[in-house]
Design a protein around this nucleic acid. Structure first.
Lengths: 156, 156
DNA sequence: AAGCTGAATTCGCAAATTGAACCCTGCTTC
DNA sequence: GAAGCAGGGTTCAATTTGCGAATTCAGCTT
C-alpha cells in the first residue's frame, strides 16, 4: 500500500521537525527568552525565527508573555516553555547526548544538564515498565507493531 | 555576540535534522530495509529519499549492503542501522512518546517498543548519574552552561 | 521632532522539495 | 531475442521554503 505510516513520530515532527525549531527550544531550555537572544544564539534568520516562534506558540510548546524590563522601557515579549514544551527535554537531551558521543567538536561538550536535586549530570535513557534500564546500544529493543513487520526487528 | 552556539544538538541535527531523515530511521528501526519499503511507509519522494539515505550512510548511521532475495533475482541493496544508528533510538522513542501524549491521533498509539528481555513497553526517561529517575515534566532539570546564562533556567 | 532599540515583517533572490517521467540492470515470458 | 517487469534509483520543471538586507512599528529618550 502507498499510504505512509501516520504515527506519533511524524506528528511530533510536524511540530518541532522544521529547521531551527529544536535549536530554538534548546535556547529556551537554557534560559533565553527574548527574540534577539534566541536569534543570536541559534543564528536563525529573523523571518524564520518569527515564523518558528509563532508555530511553536500555536502548537502549545511555548507561551508568549509581555514583560517590562527592569530599566523601564516599553513592554517586551518573552517566550517560555509550557508544560508540554518542558516535556520535550528528553528529545533535546537525547540529541545532545548522541552528538556528544559521535560528533564531538573541538570544544568539548559545552552544554550539560544536571539534576536540580543532586547536581549530577542527566542522561536520556530507555527504561522499561518493569524498571529495567536498557543499554545505550539499542540492542534490547523490539518493535511491537500491529500491522505486519516482516523482519525480526532492528537488530536482526 | 553574533556567533551562534555550536553544540551537540546542532551537530546531531546536521545529521538527522533534515525533513524525512528521522522518519526514515523510524522505518529502519521497525525492520524496513529496502528503498521501496521505506518510501511507501514514509511517503518521501524518491529523489529526497535517495539523498537522505546517502547522507545517513555517509554519516555512519546506516550501512548499505547487497543482498540476494530468496526467490532469486538480481542482488538488491538494503539499509541497516549501524551501532551509531541504533543509539539514536532514544531520540525516536522520545519523539514518539511526546506525540502519543500530546498529539494522539484517532488511531491510538500504533507503534510500541518493548524490552526484548521482559516484553514490557519502553519509555525514554531522564536519569541522573546518581540513579534518580526524573519526572516527565522537566522541572527537575537545570542547565549547567559554561558561558553565562542570565536566567535561573527553564523552570524559573 | 528626531533618534534609538528590540521585535518583528516585507522583499527579491537562492536553495531545497516535489511529483512525474525516465533510465538501468537483471530476470521472465512470449 | 524482443518485450515486459520490478527494484532502485536519477533527471527535470514547477513550486515552496529559506535566506540576508532593508523596512516598519511602538515606545522611550534627548
Amino acid at each position: 500500500m502507498t499510504t505512509p505510516r501516520v504515527c506519533s513520530v511524524a506528528r511530533t515532527l510536524d511540530v518541532v521537525g522544521e529547521r531551527w525549531s529544536l535549536l530554538v527550544l534548546r535556547e529556551v531550555f537554557l534560559g533565553m527568552r527574548r527574540f534577539e537572544q534566541i536569534r543570536e544564539h541559534t543564528g536563525a534568520p529573523r523571518a524564520v525565527l518569527a515564523q518558528r516562534l509563532r508555530h511553536l506558540v500555536d502548537a502549545g510548546v511555548l507561551e508568549q508573555r509581555d514583560y517590562r524590563p527592569e530599566g523601564g522601557g516599553r513592554t517586551r515579549q518573552e517566550y517560555r516553555l509550557t508544560e508540554a514544551g518542558r516535556e520535550l527535554q528528553p528529545v533535546i537531551t537525547a540529541l545532545m547526548q548522541w552528538g556528544d558521543r559521535h560528533l564531538a567538536g573541538s570544544e568539548g561538550p559545552p552544554l550539560r544538564v544536571v539534576h536540580h536535586g543532586c547536581g549530577a549530570p542527566v542522561q536520556a535513557r530507555l527504561v522499561c515498565a518493569e524498571g529495567h534500564l536498557l543499554g545505550d546500544d539499542g540492542r534490547e529493543l523490539r518493535p511491537a507493531v500491529p500491522d505486519g513487520v516482516p523482519g525480526p526487528g532492528p537488530s536482526g
